[in-house]
Design a protein around this nucleic acid. Structure first.
Lengths: 216, 216
DNA sequence: AGTTGTGAATCTGTTCACAGCC
DNA sequence: GGCTGTGAACAGATTCACAACT
């Protein structure tokens, strides 16, 4: 389990997260075994891709039968690192930020909000879904004290630059960036995942016109 | 301009949307010309990729100088289809839905909300950011009458199945899906873009551990 | 009989290096 | 001189076909 994950490309991990959705669906239907063909159909890809992806991490299947769902879920969650708790801080408690604080999925993925931050004095001190909102001035100290590993950025893009002065980038390992800003983390060992609505809209605008080769 | 876009892979279009962000930034700095190396650095990729991507749609650059920013923005917006208005309906006016209705980016991309839908009677009839909330029962008729091309789904995943009975899939060309559900549009000529928070979290969980080969 | 796991072949995307042009 | 545009080489991902196994 040491370097089993090294050399795995992001594209495979993205698919793993999709497979996990399928497995949850299958489990809810009280199935015990699922075939690579079934997973593939649900995801809209070829079954050989599904099989090859899993073999990157070991041989989880039973030849002639398929994959034991409960076991496969366990394995995939292990691979994705979903069994260890991760401390998260949210920055920017607007509409989107509020929606995120209330989102159940964070709990399922073992993400724990330890605090939210904003610069609006009306909001500071209040709680959303039990999570306290702090003054953004205290962010740096907070990250240090509470071993925050992940930051979620849901502020206006224009605010990003000044916020980054307050982040101790040594402790933070991942950023989920909902702004359109390109984050100044070059060269740092931080994994950034950009979720840019504007870009998604532009993409859908183009792709509506033409049916493209691939699906994400 | 007819079949110039056919045969272009999604990955290139995704990068185009990133380039557009860079071009806006450069424009704000009152620059007139930008080099492929500069765009590449901002996006964290090789300059040859940038150049090759643009040549898929024509030769926009000036040899020995670079790309004229204003012109390139115009071209890229044209390619992405951002100059034509698209009618959008939002389904599910929760926290996320509300955030989306207020989001400025839709305006920039020429997306026009013509209506929002919910099943909560407390919400029906009210307005968010000027957009009226209708009873979800009237969705099908509404799509027909108002030539809705794009649907944005921000409902609980469990609600997806029943909603899909109310969508006239012949008219709809694109769906922006914020649920974890795998949408039942197989075989239809609809472009679906999934923005699944749960999956993003799982991905960040894995990638934090290991620095992967690629960035999205 | 039926499905996984996998090497080999194919396809797609990236990098390199430089000719062509301003 | 300097940057774009591009063919050729390379790397990576997907598909195919089937051997291995239950």
């Amino acid at each position: 389990m040491e370097n089993i994950t090294s050399g795995v490309s992001e594209i495979i991990v993205i698919r793993l997260t999709t497979y996990l959705r399928c497995l949850y669906i299958a489990k809810r239907k009280r199935k015990n075994i699922i075939k690579s063909v079934e997973i593939a159909k649900l995801c809209g890809i070829k079954s050989s891709v599904v099989r090859k992806d899993f073999t990157q991490f070991g041989a989880f299947g039973i030849k002639g039968k398929g994959y034991e769902i409960e076991n496969l879920i366990k394995k995939v969650r292990e691979i994705l690192g979903l069994n260890t708790m991760k401390n998260v801080a949210l920055i920017g408690v607007g509409n989107l930020g509020t929606a995120l604080l209330k989102y159940q999925g964070f709990f399922d993925a073992n993400f724990k909000f330890v605090g939210a931050f904003d610069l609006n004095y009306q909001k500071i001190g209040k709680r959303v879904n039990g999570i306290k909102i702090y003054d953004i001035k205290n962010l740096k100290k907070f990250i240090d004290k509470n071993s925050v590993e992940i930051i979620i950025l849901s502020v206006p893009s224009a605010a990003v630059r000044s916020i980054f002065k307050n982040i101790d980038l040594k402790k933070v390992k991942g950023i989920l960036n909902f702004t359109s800003a390109i984050l100044p983390c070059e060269g740092k060992k931080i994994y950034i995942r950009n979720i840019d609505l504007s870009r998604e809209l532009e993409l859908i605008s183009f792709c509506m016109k033409k049916c493209l080769k691939k699906e994400a």
